[in-house]
């Protein structure tokens, strides 16, 4: 059923047009004598065709069309303007001003029916395309969700690849990622950014894949030469992840490269200082170190929480970005909750 909006200040014309529209079938005429009342109706309703008289007292047809077109989503709806035979200039103006076609008075049924049918066919085409576009958009959303899901899965798997060769556990990766997210939220970063760091932080040590076993798995202290090799995991991780089309991989690359930088410039690999260190690197530095300190490793015991906290406090402005430390401390309740949730024996997925 097509909704046909008809606006004419003359009763007899309204009646005639209504009768002709009804004869076409499949049409529901909606009549208005006053253009302003019709506009009001148009705010709530979307007609499939507008037939509007030119000469009306409160608002002429041209002004009606302009006001109608200005309503949201009404730019494409076909409009037929009715003018007297002698109003050629008005017809030109109407066509330029947004009318799709015109009808001349006195109305001729054959001409009227043909034009109205054409306009309604146009409208039907528009609706079909709009429905199709909506359907496709939904499909695209669905597929995008699937791809995102797969991307997340891949990231978890990449992170685990490093884990296989590393004494660090899966639970460490989960905890440090969630700590990073707590800090990001504490810094008032956008929810999407906080989510991004949660997803990207697990890849911080993925470059350890490139470190030889006798160094990576060495039980004792590393010699300065061995440590120099070990440090290269930051760049390896970056090399592995950089230039990805994925936003998460890009963030992961940045984190891999910069999470061992220190605020005072004494970190590695580039010795960046202060805010020259990308924010994600500064955030992950706090999260990673805190979790490393408070976890048990083959070569060391877990530090008590208060000692680890003291380490962060003392490292403010030296090792760590003070704002990141503050954000971490501000989220302390949540930190404890994450620590409890991801214990070394039981690993949940992110």
């Amino acid at each position: 059923m097509h909704k046909v909006l008809i606006i004419d200040d003359s009763d007899i014309n309204l009646t005639l047009i209504k009768a002709l529209v009804l004869k076409l079938g499949e049409c529901e005429p909606v009549l208005f004598e006053h253009p302003l009342k019709a506009l009001e109706w148009c705010r709530e309703q979307v007609p499939d065709l507008v037939i509007v008289d030119y000469m009306m007292p409160d608002m002429d047809g041209l002004r009606f069309i302009a006001a109608f077109r200005a309503l949201h989503g009404r730019t494409e709806i076909p409009v037929l303007m009715i003018t007297a035979n002698d109003q050629k200039d008005v017809r030109y103006e109407a066509l330029l001003g947004g009318a799709n076609d015109f009808l001349t008075k006195p109305i001729d049924r054959v001409e009227f029916s043909a034009r109205v049918r054409n306009m309604l066919a146009l409208r039907t085409g528009q609706k079909f395309l709009a429905d199709r576009a909506a359907f496709l958009a939904e499909k695209v959303d669905e597929r995008t969700r699937e791809i995102r899901e797969r991307e997340r899965e891949l990231i978890v798997r990449i992170s685990r690849a490093a884990e296989f060769r590393d004494p660090e556990t899966g639970a460490h990766i989960q905890r440090m990622a969630h700590y990073s997210e707590i800090i990001a939220r504490g810094l008032d970063l956008a929810p999407a950014t906080s989510r991004l760091i949660l997803q990207a932080a697990p890849m911080h040590d993925v470059g350890k894949i490139g470190i030889r076993d006798h160094i990576l798995l060495k039980p004792g202290r590393l010699t300065p030469e061995e440590f120099a090799v070990m440090k290269r995991h930051a760049e390896f991780g970056y090399e592995l992840l950089k230039d990805s089309g994925s936003e998460i991989m890009q963030a992961g690359a940045e984190i891999a490269l910069t999470h061992h930088e220190k605020y005072d410039g004494s970190g590695y690999p580039r010795g960046l200082r202060g805010n020259a260190i990308p924010l994600f690197g500064r955030i992950v530095a706090v999260a990673d170190v805190f979790d490393a300190l408070t976890s048990e490793r083959p070569y060391k015991k877990a530090w008590p929480l208060d000692e680890a906290l003291r380490f962060l406090e003392q490292g403010r402005g030296r090792h760590f970005d003070p704002l990141c430390v503050e954000a971490f401390l501000a989220g302390w309740e949540e930190v404890l909750e994450v620590r409890h949730r991801f214990q070394d024996e039981a690993v949940a997925t992110i």
Binding site: I12, T15, A19, L20, K23, P106, I107, D108, R109
Partner: peptide, 20 residues
């Protein structure tokens, strides 16, 4: 002819004209 040969509409138009 203009009304597509529709007597019903014709009668209605006449009626309306006379009323108005």
């Amino acid at each position: 002819e203009r009304l597509g040969g529709d007597e019903e509409i014709y009668a209605m138009m006449l009626e309306m004209f006379l009323n108005d």
